[in-house]
Design a protein around this nucleic acid. Structure first.
Lengths: 202, 202
DNA sequence: GGACCGTGAGAACGATCGTTCTCACCTGCT
DNA sequence: AGCAGGTGAGAACGATCGTTCTCACGGTCC
């Protein structure tokens, strides 16, 4: 087994264990036996558990956002429907076996106060997600704040789905997002016909 | 120091430590030195760390919801404004020093997979919050799903405020909630002509 | 063929954690 | 006064964790 495969087996095992049980609950020994990679090699691939946790979060961030973007890209429909497709993708995620909420919210709650790296990774993930959603909303005729509103609904759906163990929040958030997107067309305070008047920054 | 005072000092210390640093990070020794209650007494008040964690969550749940209800009760305004007052209260919470998100989401992410008691406490807390918000929305003229929509916005605001360290999500969620409450009056699927015809304000 | 470097498997180490035990001391009852 | 029982302070215990070390082995280059 070469280094590349060992690395991905370790990351696969770490992701399943860390996400499924929490980070502190899972010892390096559990990662070793789940991955079949020897402890010595594990430590030469990742010099500490903190480094492994960071790698786990970074890879999951990339995978998660890529998967969402691929799904939305496959939707050939007007901008409004593409925004709502985010919630369809969320429902699919919520229904996966072993779904246990957003890995970044979870790890932030667990380690955000003691590990600046974890806090940074979680912050960046959410920032990128917000940027993505805002971009999708910007090409609809909804006013600028709608992007952040839709992102808040998505975040709420994630935590509610995790806590209740149901995928229903995806549909409810989708409903609410549709209402918000249409509110503009019915007389919200946004620029009427103009669509995006200023790009979202910060 | 009698048992009652010892108990509340332990719970105060546990709440500050568990909430501020995460549960697993904080040892019983830290609770002991922060509370000034001897280890022996601590264990005779709470037979295990798990019992202390459960008591911490139950007391925080009661306090949090009481504080929110007291704030909303103090708002003498139409039902719509009382719903929005929830977000004003959230903003005040977000701005408290040491705010680190929802204690129940955090503890669920950390221990929900390994501790049924923690998972149950978090689930019940969110259930009660949803019930409360739904009750506030029910006396407005918004359609029934609006209660869940508003709750999703509040959940999203909590996690976003925690991750970004900003209280701005409270205002954004408030904006979105206002749009959702008014969408009914403007032609949502709710009660048709009955709603207030006044244009959206604030 | 033999020195050599990296590997696998797991023991070992030091720290920390939850929990219990020791022991000297104080207090209230008879 | 004398005893029983509870308390404070902290040592002690057993388990676990992250990390490193040992050691026998197998492939590689002179």
């Amino acid at each position: 087994m070469d280094n590349g495969e060992a690395r991905s087996r370790v990351l696969d095992a770490a992701e399943e264990l860390f996400y499924g049980q929490g980070i502190q609950t899972v010892g390096m020994d559990a990662v070793r036996s789940a991955s079949g990679v020897t402890l010595r090699r594990l430590y030469q691939l990742f010099p500490s558990k903190g480094a492994l946790v960071e790698a786990y979060l970074l890879r999951r961030d990339a995978r998660w956002r890529d998967s969402l973007a691929a799904y939305v890209d496959s939707v050939d429909a007007p901008p409004r429907e593409r925004v709502l497709a985010v919630f369809d993708w969320l429902r699919g995620w919520f229904e996966e076996p072993g779904f246990r909420g957003c890995a970044f919210i979870n790890s932030f709650g667990e380690l955000g106060a003691t590990s600046p790296e974890v806090a940074e990774a979680a912050r960046r993930h959410k920032e990128e997600f917000l940027r993505y959603v805002t971009g999708l909303v910007a090409v609809t005729d909804a006013p600028a704040p709608a992007g952040r509103h839709v992102a808040l609904l998505a975040e709420g759906a994630m935590t509610t789905a995790a806590l209740t163990g149901s995928s229903a929040p995806a549909g409810e958030a989708r409903e609410a997002a549709a209402l918000l997107l249409d509110a503009a067309a019915r007389g919200g305070r946004g620029a009427p016909g103009a669509g995006r008047s200023a790009p979202p920054n910060r």
